[in-house]
Design a protein around this nucleic acid. Sequence first.
RNA 1: GGGCGGGUGCCCGAGUGGCCAAAGGGAGCGGUCUGUAAAAUCGCCGGCGUAGCCUACGGAGGUUCGAAUCCUCCCCCGCCCA
Length: 417
Amino acid sequence: MTADDLRFLEAGAARVVPERGLADKLSLGRPLRVKLGLDPTAPAVTLGWAVVLRKLRQFQDAGHVAVLIVGDFTARVGDPSGRSEARPRLAKEDVDRYAERVLDEFSSILDLDRAEVRRNSEWLEPLGIEDVLRLAGSITVARMLERDDFAARFAAGRPISLMEFCYPLLQGYDSVAVEADVELGGTDQLFNLLVGRDLQRDHGQDPQVALTMPLLVGTDGVQKMSQSLGNYVAVTDPPDEMFGKLVRIPDGSIADYRLLTLDFFRDPDEAERVRQGLASGELDPWQEKRRMAREVVDLYHGPGAGAVAEARFDELHRARAVPRDAPGVLVPATVFEQDPAGGWRLWVPGLLEAMGLVGSRAEARRLLAQGGVRVDGRTESREALPLEGPPPGSFLGSIWQVGRRRAARLAGLRDSG
RNA sequence: GGGCGGGUGCCCGAGUGGCCAAAGGGAGCGGUCUGUAAAAUCGCCGGCGUAGCCUACGGAGGUUCGAAUCCUCCCCCGCCCA
């Protein structure tokens, strides 16, 4: 029973530190407090984020306590990590709003009723400088520089602020404050999770077990999935979009996607079977990719949603059907113009811009010249189109497509102003 | 505090008075092909109603017919020394 529990809870994990730690914690025979920090500055929950949320859900299902930490204090201070650009500091209300939204999206994965949600301002705000310095005393600079991204940036001569050094400390102190038994995170969080162990030890607590999950690669198949890189799938993406994005990942990522979005909490062996099948050529990558996409859509939109999305996908992209249900847009009358003879013309770049299909009219003109614009399924390269009678005339209801993924329907005229 | 080197378009990076809307690469976008994968290949990649004009090389001034390039001040970053 405990052995099964352990295998279940460690399924898919990248690292468990210390290796035997989780088994020891489980043998305590009480519900464990499993900590997960959430980033209240991110507007959407991605499939990458979902990985660690699913893992937390597994702990919940096994009877343990999910402790979610809203990093409201840290978000307000502003974290200049990453690209060395100082992240905007957020006002209290903004953080609260974001956090609420994010938590709302979590509810499709976690059982929030059984979770403990805490804000770290609760214990970080009262800290005095003396406390902070004492915390800082627990870690050496050399130790900090062991962290991958610090080491890399230092070597590359890129700036690292002292405040960034404080982040792991504050995050680690969260573990002390909530007396975490286990902390979850992506592999990029390992260092921070380990700092938590050190601080807990300094505070006379039994150090938490750090359990990291592999990072889900983005839809580009190269970089980690992140919102700032735009290579993500959000758990709230509508079925068609979700299917389309998933089916666009490189073949080499199929098994990883299976494991981290579906299999580790359902049937951990399935991903491995697929990996081997693909490697040996027994399985067809295209079919496997579609199956994965279908299953993920089912997971987030209900059984059967995947099949519907798949059918629509085939219709639109294989049969090249015109997307009749593209969002309707009202356009200003100024995209139509009257020539001296009294005839009307449609000014295409203006229209495409008004419909939000292009970023600028100059872009529209380039795309027209390159054959990237279709009207009701036919490629159009003219910048002005004649029409019979007053606008919008026969263009009412016309479907405009730019490239393969952008489309809109001309729903009518809007009063300019 | 002192010395040195830097800040160029989404990113990296060339450019040291006009030929610079700014080389090259990456990312991105469009076409062909295809499985909205990979590979290949062609093209685009600041804005403006189609013309030249505007905006742009950390910021503000200045020199010049002309400045990403020269000068002054300021801001920012890195390295070394303290």
